[in-house]
């Protein structure tokens, strides 16, 4: 899997949603992306890319698109 596929897979597995739901997806935009879902998502992203996100970035991760931007700080290009 390339980075983009890993990124999508993390959202799909952590939030239990379909790939079709990803474009434009926002925090709390679906029931599964609540505060607990957010922690699951963070864990999934950290596992997928072998990183540990800073708290400020966890708070900033407010959408599917924003996450891509944040991961660049960890040398993950999508």
């Amino acid at each position: 899997m390339n980075h983009s596929e890993k990124y999508e897979a993390a959202f799909v597995s952590a939030l239990g949603i379909s790939k079709d739901d990803l474009p434009g997806l926002q925090y709390q935009g679906v029931a599964a992306w609540d505060s607990i879902g957010h922690m699951q998502l963070i864990f999934a992203l950290e596992e997928a890319f072998g990183i540990m996100l800073d708290t400020s970035d966890i708070i900033d991760l407010s959408s599917f698109e924003k996450g891509k931007e944040l991961l660049r700080k960890y040398d993950v290009e999508l």
Binding site: Q40, I42, A44, E46, T55
Partner: peptide, 13 residues
Amino acid sequence: MELIQLAARVMVR
């Protein structure tokens, strides 16, 4: 507080 946050990220999974 910090350790609760960090541990919770692992435990939630």
